[in-house]
Amino acid sequence: MKRYQLAIAVKDKEYTRRIADYIRGSSFGERWQVSAFTHPNACKQFAKQGYAIDLIAAEPDLLRELQSELSHIPSITLVARLGETGGQPELLQYQALPLLLQGITDHFEAMSHKSGRGLSMHPAGKGAMVLTVHSASGGVGKTTLALHLVGAASARGLRMLYLNLERWNTSELWLQFGGDAIWDGEGLSELLYAIKAGSKSYAAWLAQHRKFHPQLKCDYLLGFRNQEDRASLLPADAAAIVDSIAQSGHYDGIVVDMDDGLDELHIELLMRADRNLWVVSGDQSAQTKQSLMLRYGGQKFGEAFRGISARSEVVCNGMNAEIGNSLSAMEASLAPVALPLVREWRQGELHPVGSSSSYRAAADRLCTHLLGGSEEPRIHAVG
């Protein structure tokens, strides 16, 4: 992965030291090399000496002085309150360092996509790619698979977001395991309100309200503030949430963790997805429910559902892939990777994501398959 030169210009020397120390000891050090300045003339001299600067992050007054000579370099303003710069790229200066650095990275990559500076780009107008993780019944391992897939894709350098749209969202149990997630901020309810109000500031909203998971190296959003918002979610609203994130420029892929079942909302998301994974377990009842659901989908939704099936694969969880060949009645391809049965996960105790090396390896192989064996951004998941 290429390392880029980040110039930080702030007056507080201790602030620049903390940022530099944090980057050196974190995964952001793989992406950024930092030079810190407390005076704009020092930064200008640095550039005049021939040192390349890919991005400047500076306090407003320092940035104004720098732009007199370095206006050709992309920049982000570090502000005390959002909205100070009249629409220019900005980030809150005093926030958790992981969020600040993730925001800097995302703003830079969004700028790079727009200017064609050589970073991987998406097909025109498509935004991030979408993958759904879905099933006919609960308890078959959708959330576990979705989280492992988003982690595997993030490990390949892709910018990923995990999005849980289940009616009863318990993903925080896994996202908080060993982490510092705080589930008291704004989440999907606020994003939905903004969409319905006609706001177009999705990218700025995401930059301020997404959460970063340090183990999975991906972003996620808090759930709905109240259960009624999710219970009354319309199919068009669910699709609008996915589209707003996909078009934000922040991500290569979105993995959406879906409810079990099949209604108009499911169909809307499955039609929106670029790829879909149907998860089945070794339980005969779960397999029968899956077969019945897919048969019903074909009868109820006709050609639209056949298009969904053509972009779908059945993933066998906790059973031999050969057994999955008996599921041919589902009229969907069988994924070439089966997920192993992890017996210690069946004891009823909460398990951290990635705690099973065999499952992690299988999810990584499945991710490689979904990516087409390349490093190009190919995932946007709903599950």
Rank of each mutant, 00 (worst) to 15 (best):
Y51N: 12
H72V: 08
H72K: 14
I53N: 02
Y51E: 08
S68C: 15
R64H: 08
I76P: 01
S75I: 02
S68F: 09
Q49T: 10
T38K: 12
I56D: 00
I76A: 02
K44P: 08
L62Y: 05
H39T: 08
R64M: 11
G50W: 15
L63W: 13
Q45P: 15
Q45E: 05
L63K: 00
L70Y: 04
H39K: 07
N41G: 12
K48Q: 13
H72I: 12
Q45N: 08
H39A: 13
A57Y: 07
I53V: 13
C43G: 04
Q45K: 13
A47Y: 01
K48C: 08
F46P: 00
I73V: 11
A42P: 02
D61K: 11
A42L: 11
Q49R: 14
F37I: 08
K44H: 10
A42M: 09
R64D: 15
T38I: 14
F37Q: 10
E59T: 11
E69W: 06
Q45R: 09
E69C: 07
S71F: 14
F46V: 03
P40Q: 05
R64V: 06
G50K: 09
R64E: 13
R64C: 04
D61W: 11
S68M: 15
S68G: 15
K48W: 05
D61R: 08
H39C: 05
L63M: 15
A57Q: 02
L55H: 11
I56F: 02
S68P: 14
F37M: 08
L55V: 10
E65I: 15
E69Y: 11
S68K: 11
A58I: 02
G50L: 06
Q67Y: 06
E69K: 14
L63G: 04
D54E: 04
S71R: 09
F37W: 06
I53W: 01
D54M: 01
L55P: 00
I53F: 00
P40V: 02
I76L: 05
K44F: 06
G50T: 07
L62H: 03
L66W: 03
N41T: 12
R64F: 06
L66R: 02
Q45T: 03
E59A: 10
L70D: 01
N41V: 04
L70K: 01
I53M: 13
S68R: 13
F37T: 02
I53L: 10
L55M: 04
L62N: 05
A47T: 07
S75C: 07
P60G: 04
K48L: 08
H72D: 15
I56P: 01
L66A: 01
A52G: 12
Q67F: 04
L70R: 01
K44E: 07
A42R: 09
H39R: 08
Q45I: 06
Y51C: 12
E65T: 12
E65Q: 12
Y51I: 07
N41H: 06
I73Q: 01
K48E: 10
P60W: 05
L63I: 00
T38H: 14
F46G: 03
S75Q: 02
E69I: 07
A57L: 07
E65F: 09
D61G: 09
F46W: 15
L70F: 06
I73Y: 00
Q67W: 07
Q49F: 06
A58C: 05
I53D: 01
A42H: 14
K48D: 05
D61N: 10
D54Y: 04
L66E: 06
F46M: 10
H72L: 12
P74W: 03
L70A: 08
L55D: 00
F46I: 00
P74H: 10
L62V: 01
N41E: 12
H39P: 03
